[in-house]
Design a protein around this nucleic acid. Structure first.
Lengths: 348, 348
DNA sequence: CTGAAAGCGCTTACAG
DNA sequence: CTGAAAGCGCTTACAG
């Protein structure tokens, strides 16, 4: 297939250095030579191979986003932000997907991430929604590549994330403020970072309001795909709530995608609890689902800024951008109890 | 940062050829030498750069999936299939995202796709949900790379797709079979491949049943993001249906994501038409949404098979795999009219 | 402004 | 089984 820089040089009667300069927009080329080279290149359908360029430059101009199963609906919006921010830069974005069967943890994920670093194909890496422990994060340092964490915090790398504890707190408090007292939480896979943090916020809100917190308020689905961030998991958890024999008025749900499943369970049981989710996925608005909004688009933009900045200035100080999630009240968490409703004003 | 093959060779007292052989699992290396090399490599934290390997081999062992805005929920499931099928192969998958503002057409998309080919970074390309015209597809031939189309058909490349005309026909017929006579269709952006085909099926079903077809049965939303495959677009289109002054009983909706928006519109108007979507996204089950199922996971697997086969055997005949979408009946399209209901048996 | 030459980090016949 | 050498397709000081 391909013609090389040598073909073009020979045909245009110049050296390969000149051809290279033309394609790198070097100012040190006469318009005449440039035109001649470009003409020949067009005739041959020549384009410099990114591969060879990267090797020679010792720079790939590539940023890799590492994502554990793109399924995360979350990622779609993050991506939009990354793309828009990338537009003006010289970098290309490539996405490497981490395959997960079941939980997003364990050696398998670790190995896949390391494999990506071993290939050494990118100037910088944005790691999204992967929650390693300290040792794992430290271990990545040996590859000596710029890293930005998104939806995760570790002191050793730049990061952008949302304060999940605060989010769990605000969500639960919004329920309490509406007059609900019997509140459960739908978790995803236990010991998982989002769950640990959001349930901590849940607990804090309850205790602050003088409502007793117990483990028994936490409900789990059994589906562990995507760490339990699935419709099915939420459906199962809500079923557990409705069948546990205990009365609940409201539910704080770990994620919108789970809330979608929870909604179905409520319909099946014809029993409607107030519910508030977490994320604000694009469909949540159309479900009338109250939620804690994560500024995903913004986070994507910021992650790109951070990684580019670190690629260009490796020695700058590490920074962490932490958003407070925003409360979005829609119908799903509004009380239907007229007595309670009287005390509440619609917020969003 | 990194040590190179030279460092390892020197330290291990062998030639770089031997180091290379060790890392390429060549059988022609004594266990002793192999161990020695591996030990040194481990100590140095050495890994061959994929970049340099690719250049020397003139093979990248990389397959690139080109996707117009990953947002397409559709893609998530396709990806799962691709990953599973890739597991046993020697290839890596990388995803290149096409940025789209508004419609997925025009020069901008064309240029982005071409840029990816110009970089020449992959051994093969799977192009997903991009609908070019004949000239555009032909134009890509000049890059002389293996290409597989997914969710698109063009005779010049291997492809895997779903018969959308058939899908539109079966969906509409299912509505007719249930006794509905006043049926509208929610389209996405007009002149777009899915819309053209599905509305053709819609028309065919009507005419075959002796129901008059008119343009006025086709409704459009104004949001053109993702070619109109958005919740908002469906919401707008359903509003148009409910406000047009004409009575409808049922709706065939171009995609599940739009159906989600349509559902909201119906709720707002407290007017419930039977509705059937297209795709069977993961949440559709939890919405009780009837739909035409596309075997996305399977399609992903097949696309990988095809591209790998063509990479390894460039001269094999071109093949097209075309699925008939499967009808999934859930609550949304079941009639509530007891008279009609009597004639219908629940299918799915 | 242009060219000759070294170098990027590997692989792979070709000998031995 | 192992090594010397050429080659993959570029970029980039260094001269001029």
């Amino acid at each position: 297939m391909g013609s090389t820089i040598y073909d073009i040089a020979r045909e245009a009667g110049v050296s390969i250095a000149t051809v290279s300069r033309v394609f790198n927009d070097s100012p040190r080329v006469t318009p005449a030579t440039r035109d001649k080279v470009l003409a020949v290149a067009a005739r041959f359908g020549y384009h410099p191979r990114a591969l060879a360029q990267s090797l020679a430059r010792r720079k790939t101009r590539l940023i890799t986003a590492i994502v554990p199963i793109i399924s995360n609906y979350y990622f779609m919006e993050v991506l939009a932000g990354m793309q828009d921010q990338l537009a003006e830069s010289e970098f290309y974005l490539q996405i490497s997907n981490i395959k997960t069967t079941g939980e997003v943890r364990g050696d398998d994920v670790r190995n896949q991430v390391e494999d990506i670093f071993k290939r050494g194909m990118s100037d910088g890496y944005i790691i999204i929604s992967i929650h390693f422990d300290e040792a794992d994060w430290e271990n990545l340092k040996k590859y000596d590549r710029p890293i930005t964490l998104l939806d995760e915090y570790y002191s050793g790398y730049d990061s952008v994330s949302v304060d999940s504890i605060e989010g769990g707190y605000v969500a639960t408090k919004s329920l309490i403020d509406q007059g609900y007292k019997k509140i459960a939480m739908i978790c995803a896979v236990a010991d998982t970072k989002p769950v640990v943090e959001r349930s901590a916020g849940f607990r804090k809100a309850l205790e602050q309001a003088g409502l007793p917190y117990e483990e028994a308020l936490l409900f789990y689905g059994t589906d562990i795909k995507r760490d339990g961030h699935t419709e099915l998991n939420g459906y199962q958890a809500m079923k557990a709530i409705l069948e546990c024999g205990r009365e609940f008025e409201a539910v704080f749900c770990n994620s919108d995608i789970q809330a979608l499943g929870a909604l179905k369970a409520m319909q099946e049981y014809q029993k409607y609890l107030a519910i508030i989710g977490f994320d604000d996925l694009s469909f949540s608005e159309f479900l009338g689902l109250s939620t804690m909004r994560q500024p995903m688009y913004e986070m994507g933009k910021i992650a790109i800024d951070k990684i580019i900045n670190r690629i260009n200035h490796p020695e700058t100080d590490i920074t962490h951008t932490i958003f407070s999630p925003r409360l979005i009240i829609r119908n799903s968490s509004l009380t239907t109890d007229p007595e309670l409703a009287a005390k509440v004003e619609k917020v969003g």
